[in-house]
Amino acid sequence: GSPLAQQIKNIHSFIHQAKAAGRMDEVRTLQENLHQLMHEYFQQ
């Protein structure tokens, strides 16, 4: 897949890990990143 698709997959797993660790501030930051990446992805 594209590097962007790979990045989106990575962030999904980072979010999963951050949630499991209870780091909600990190989850929020990652979700904002994910949102931006998704936006770029669909602009392609």
Rank of each mutant, 00 (worst) to 15 (best):
A18R: 01
Y41N: 03
E32A: 11
L34T: 00
Q43M: 11
A20I: 11
A20K: 10
Q43E: 09
L37C: 00
Q17K: 11
K9H: 08
Q7T: 07
Q7H: 06
Q43F: 08
L37W: 02
Q6G: 05
F42T: 07
H35M: 14
H12E: 10
S13C: 10
Q43P: 06
T29D: 08
Q36M: 10
E26F: 05
S13E: 14
A21H: 05
L34F: 03
Q43D: 07
E26G: 01
Q43L: 12
Q7Y: 06
R23W: 06
Y41D: 02
F42V: 06
G1W: 07
H35L: 14
Q36D: 07
F14I: 08
K19V: 12
Y41P: 01
Q17E: 13
Y41S: 04
N33F: 15
T29Q: 14
I15V: 02
F42I: 09
E26L: 14
Q44N: 11
E26M: 07
L30E: 01
M24V: 08
N10C: 12
G22I: 02
N10E: 14
K9I: 09
F14M: 15
Q31H: 08
G22K: 03
A18M: 06
G22Q: 03
D25Q: 05
H39Q: 14
H12W: 15
M24F: 13
N10A: 14
H12M: 15
S2V: 14
N33A: 15
K9F: 07
Y41W: 13
K9T: 05
Y41C: 12
L37A: 03
V27Y: 05
F14R: 15
E26C: 04
Q6E: 13
E40V: 08
H35D: 10
Q31G: 04
H35Y: 12
K9W: 09
I11Y: 06
L34N: 00
I8S: 00
Q17H: 06
L30N: 01
F42G: 06
N10V: 11
F42Y: 12
H39A: 12
S13R: 15
Q6N: 07
Q17A: 14
H16A: 15
E40Q: 12
A20T: 08
P3T: 15
K9A: 13
L34D: 00
Q7L: 13
H35C: 08
S2P: 11
R23D: 09
N10P: 01
S13H: 14
K19L: 15
H39R: 13
N10I: 14
M38G: 01
L4Y: 04
P3G: 13
E40A: 10
L34I: 03
G22F: 03
I11Q: 02
K9R: 10
I8C: 06
A21E: 11
Y41V: 05
H12Y: 14
L30A: 05
N10R: 13
Y41H: 06
K19H: 09
S13D: 13
Q6L: 11
Q17P: 01
G1Y: 03
A18N: 02
I11W: 02
A18G: 01
H16R: 14
I15T: 00
K9Q: 10
N10Q: 14
S2A: 12
L4D: 02
R28S: 06
Q36T: 09
N10S: 08
Q36Y: 07
F14W: 14
L30T: 00
G1R: 06
E26R: 04
F42R: 10
M38R: 03
F42C: 07
A5D: 08
P3R: 08
V27E: 01
Q17L: 10
Q31W: 12
S2D: 12
D25R: 03
V27K: 01
V27P: 01
K19R: 12
M38E: 03
I15F: 01
H39L: 15
M38H: 03
E32I: 10
I11S: 01
T29N: 08
L37E: 00
L4I: 09
A20G: 04
K9S: 07
Q6P: 02
M24L: 13
S2F: 11
G1D: 12
T29W: 11
L37V: 04
A18H: 03
L30Q: 02
Q31R: 11
N10M: 14
L34S: 00
K9V: 06
S2N: 11
T29L: 13
E40P: 02
L4V: 05
L4E: 02
N33D: 08
R28N: 06
H16Y: 09
L34Y: 02
H35N: 11
A21T: 05
Q44S: 10
Q36E: 07
K19F: 13
N33L: 15
H12A: 09
A20C: 09
L4R: 02
P3H: 13
Q17G: 04
A21Y: 02
Q31I: 13
S13V: 13
G1Q: 11
R23I: 03
Q7V: 09
